[in-house]
Design a protein around this nucleic acid. Structure first.
Lengths: 153, 153
DNA sequence: GTAATACTTGACTAATTTGCTTGGGAAGAT
DNA sequence: ATCTTCCCAAGCAAATTAGTCAAGTATTAC
């Protein structure tokens, strides 16, 4: 449960996006203000979230960031891996490199544990934590009230 | 899943004890050697595990450490809390201090998440990872083959 | 064009954590 | 008595984390 504060920042920021999902992009300045953290630090985190395909950036006035997938498709494990810059391939290799019985019983047990923990986090999506109704609209349902939403959102 | 390396050392050491449970104490030197870490560092970790009531130390020749409870009663969360010196009271306060809706939606969502994660780890006992049969004997069944086991084990 | 905003890079710092050493006890088996 | 083992505390070097500051470039709405 000891999750790094970096991961905490990233997760709460992603939760902001999830709660705002379907209602256009959010600027990092907004998120930084609400979460009480520096803009540049948040930029670093989002740079990684973007590289790992979890968010889309929209430039220009009215731009910002939004989720690249529906909240149901984004897991806690994905967010943590992204901010720590672990690719899915690396993650795979970590578990694949393991051969039971090669380094003692406790080592096997440790591996079982970390696998169980990872599976738990990989199975826990942003969707699970959304409570407000309006946030749960379909991902791409652009509002038709005169202005078209950004294509990426 | 990002668990600190300190926690990893503590957990694997506890797994060693669990796998050896009911067969007398294990010395820290043995564990340090198997895990490839320094004795004094391990001593520091066990000092905390002992203060938090998870292990018993037995001094003198033939001594060592053993679990203070059955593996089924020791959770991953307990081990992590112990080695980071968080008392159950502190842990309680952390969750009790929370009032939904006071600091924004994302904050509530974060709290839900950390609670879920903690509950998961609190529900995961050492017992779950023990595979070898002989390690699962009853906690206090001293072997009667001439030598009496230490009272604490 | 201009303003707003994302995006990029790099250097830099402060605090914390990690892993370990040293140097001692204290208790118990033999 | 001696040896083995736990027990305790102070301190330290390296690494990592968390964060700021600065100085730009790119893209788009208007």
């Amino acid at each position: 449960m000891r999750v790094s504060t970096k991961a905490r920042h990233a997760i709460t920021a992603m939760m902001h996006l999830a709660a705002h999902n379907g209602r256009g992009p959010l600027t990092l300045s907004d998120i930084a203000q609400v979460q009480g953290m520096s803009l540049s630090y948040l930029e670093q985190l989002f740079s990684r979230l973007r590289k790992h395909g979890l968010v889309n950036g929209v430039r220009g006035p009215g731009g910002g960031y939004c989720l690249a997938m529906s909240p149901a498709e984004i897991s806690m494990a994905q967010i943590m891996d992204a901010v720590d810059d672990r690719s899915p391939a690396e993650r795979e290799r970590f578990f694949a490199a393991y051969r039971p019985g090669t380094r003692g019983e406790a080592h096997d047990m440790w591996h079982d544990f970390s696998k169980r923990l990872y599976d738990f986090l990989a199975d826990l999506s942003l969707q699970e934590f959304i409570r407000s109704q309006q946030a749960q609209v379909g991902t791409r349902r652009a509002s038709r009230t005169g202005v078209e939403l950004h294509a990426a959102c």
